[in-house]
Every structure is written in C-alpha cells, then in structure tokens.
Design a protein around this nucleic acid. Structure first.
Lengths: 120, 120
DNA sequence: AGCAATACATACTTTTTTGTATGTAACATA
DNA sequence: TATGTTACATACAAAAAAGTATGTATTGCT
C-alpha cells in the first residue's frame, strides 16, 4: 500500500520532469520563442533583442539549449566572428507549448489588471 | 537602433515570463499534473504519491499554487485535520500545456534510449 | 497519562542559479 | 600602431531555491 503507482504513471512523472529540466531555465523559453518569431538570429541580435540578459547568461543558456539539441548553432569562420542560432526540429516541437503558455499568460495578465483596484 | 522592439513584442515576452514564474518551480507542473490525473487529493495522498518531495517543499509549493489561484484548498474543521486539494479552473487551463510537455518528454526519452549505445 | 493520526511550521544549511566585472582573440581599417 | 567589431570566457559574489531536522496542535482511543 505504500507505493500504489504503476509503471505508466512513473513514466509520466519522469516525462514532465524531464521536459521541464530542458526548458526550465529563466530565459530558455523566451529564447526559443524569439528564435521562433524571428527565425535565424546572430548572437548579437539575440543579445540586443533581450537586453536584460547578460552575455554570460545568454551564452550559458544557448550552450545548454544546444546540448539538449533544441537549437542549431552555425559558426562562420570569419573575422569578426559570426555565429547564427536557429530552432532545431526538436526545439520547434516545443513551440505549441510555449505558445499555449504565452496565451495563458496574456490572459492572466489581463485578468489581473482587471482585478487591480489601483489600476482603475 | 538600439531597441527595435515594439509594444506587442514586449507584451509577448512578459507573458511567457509571467506564465513561467507561476509554474516554473521544481514540482509545480508535477503537482498540477497529478491533481489532473487523480482529481481531488488530500495532503497525505499527494505526499505519498510523490515521496521524493519533502513536506516542507510540498507545503511551500502548494501555498504558491494556491496564491496564484491554480489550485483550490478546502479545509475540513476536524481532528485529525483534513485538507483537500484540487485544480482550479485557471489551473486546469494549464493542463493542455503540461500534457504537451509530457508527450514531448516521453518522445525525447524514447529517442535518447534509442540512441544510447550502452542500452543496446 | 501516553500514543496515534494528519497537516503542517520553522530554523538552519546546502546547493543551484544568476549576476558583476573584466579579459581575450583575430583581423580590417584609419 | 591603435581602434573597432563580434562572440564569447572566466573568476568571483550574491541571491534564490531546495533540503534537513525537528517541533506543534488537536482530539479520540487505549
């Protein structure tokens, strides 16, 4: 009676957890969302699009996304350097989810503004 | 030329970010997913279903979910105490997203096992 | 009186994540 | 020879999240 989980349920736990580990970072979803909206972007373009992300965090996050194969990284052997980032197929498969989240968020924000007395 | 974002895009950023703050915790999505799968659950039942979550984290996470109105908390004035948790309507609206994430995760896990030489 | 059941609370420590500040490489151009 | 451009790297500090251990309240039952 201690553990009444079946295998299927355990896999389900893991899958939600597994997925969350790959996109759970502070900026991951946003980066994926931007790559989706804008297509191929250079490092500097990403940086200028999201000025609140420091270069350290941007690089770090991009590396993690690349390791998990959610984005593609294309390096041009030129000076000054040129590196392009884009969504991978696997990363692209996460877009419907981010979109849902995005719509949900928009709706919630609207609701909170509506309920906010100070805002009236 | 420094900031070429328009208002619409800024709202989009915020929405993804906003949403992520509400379900970004280590256990939040899992708890919501379980409440969806099982319906109404008592504190102890949740705890037994997810034995890897300490009572401190479970309580803390449940409180945050409650504050953000993603779950309902119903207290029965009895001894020993009885408290029931369930998805709120707003929380329920997140289920399609968690489900998507869950399916994506399952697929990725399968893919990784397939690619794993050691597993063969 | 002592114990069990249930749903927590709280002080404190450890770990993880994020931020700050500064530095580097390579070449083209002034 | 100095400067600008681009895409980072790295040491260190701060902040946030999570974990550990222990305690509490109430009441029925033995």
């Amino acid at each position: 009676m201690k553990n009444n989980l079946n295998i299927t349920e355990n896999i389900q736990i893991c899958a939600v957890d597994f997925a969350f580990k790959r996109i759970g970072g502070k900026y991951k979803a946003r980066i994926l969302w931007y790559l989706f909206l804008k297509g191929v972007l250079r490092y500097g373009e990403l940086s200028r699009t999201m000025p609140d992300i420091t270069t350290k965090m941007l690089t770090q996050t991009l590396r993690e996304l690349e390791e998990d194969k959610l984005i593609n990284r294309k390096v041009y052997q030129v000076v000054p350097p040129k590196v392009e980032y884009s969504l991978s197929e696997t990363g692209y498969e996460l877009i419907p989810f981010i979109e849902h989240l995005h719509n949900w968020g928009k709706k919630q924000i609207a609701k909170e503004i509506e309920e906010c007395e100070v805002c009236k």
